[in-house]
């Protein structure tokens, strides 16, 4: 009945059975905190993000951090080898993670990573796409929807012109990229459910 933590933001999927759930959570929190801080530093550099109200900056980050991390760490999911690399650098096979309780979310993460890497985005395009993911006016709790919407539109326009410049099949690439947004929402929902189940457990 041993517990596992099948999240690559953790050092290892193996949980020490002698540790209390509080200790396990504290350790996990320590391991993902640097990545969350990096997302905040990234957000601060998005032109116009710091002009939003403090409340809306926090709301966007609270709602979107997971999705940004999925994009940034998509390469941890090796579609070819069917492995996931954890923070320790150690790789675990899909089969091993499945035997530890990983389910539908794992499959969906692989599917997403595969589709994203197929678009062959440059670092600049990936960065702009990540900004679009974060600045979404339809997140819950936004107080000034118009400001967030205006910033999001600017970012989408910039992303579009960048894609148009760099890709031969630009319209298809841009459409496929925008279709990743609902995919990320769906992953976010699945992840929230798993986290909640973990906390309850």
């Amino acid at each position: 009945n041993r517990m596992h933590l099948v999240c690559p933001m953790s050092v290892s999927p193996y949980v020490d059975p002698c540790k209390s759930s509080h200790e396990i959570w504290e350790e996990f929190s320590m391991s993902f905190t640097p990545a969350v801080r990096e997302v905040v530093e990234f957000a601060k550099k998005i032109p116009g993000f710091r002009d939003l109200s403090q409340h809306d900056q926090v709301s966007l980050l609270k709602a979107g951090t997971f999705e940004v991390l999925v994009v940034r760490f998509a390469s941890l999911f090796d579609v070819k080898d069917r492995t996931v690399t954890f923070l320790s650098g150690k790789k675990y096979s899909v089969e091993a993670l499945r035997s530890m309780g990983a389910g539908e979310l794992l499959n969906s993460m692989f599917e997403f990573s595969e589709k994203l890497s197929a678009l062959q985005l440059s670092e600049e395009e990936m960065s702009l796409f990540t900004a679009v993911v974060l600045v979404s006016a339809d997140r819950s709790g936004i107080e000034n929807v118009n400001s967030v919407e205006a910033l999001q539109e600017n970012l989408i326009r910039a992303l579009r012109s960048l894609i148009m410049k760099n890709h031969s099949n630009e319209a298809a690439t841009f459409t496929k990229l925008l279709l990743k947004l609902p995919d990320l929402r769906s992953l976010n929902n699945m992840h929230s459910e798993e986290l909640l189940a973990f906390k309850v457990h």
Partner: peptide
């Protein structure tokens, strides 16, 4: 989702990183 984030301590990490609080700088 936001409610989950609050429960997970994410909001605290985000606020500290956004504000660059003195506590954060000491770390």
């Amino acid at each position: 989702l936001s409610e989950h984030a609050s429960n997970l301590g994410l909001e605290d990490i985000i606020r500290k990183a956004l504000m660059g609080s003195s506590e954060e700088r000491q770390e």
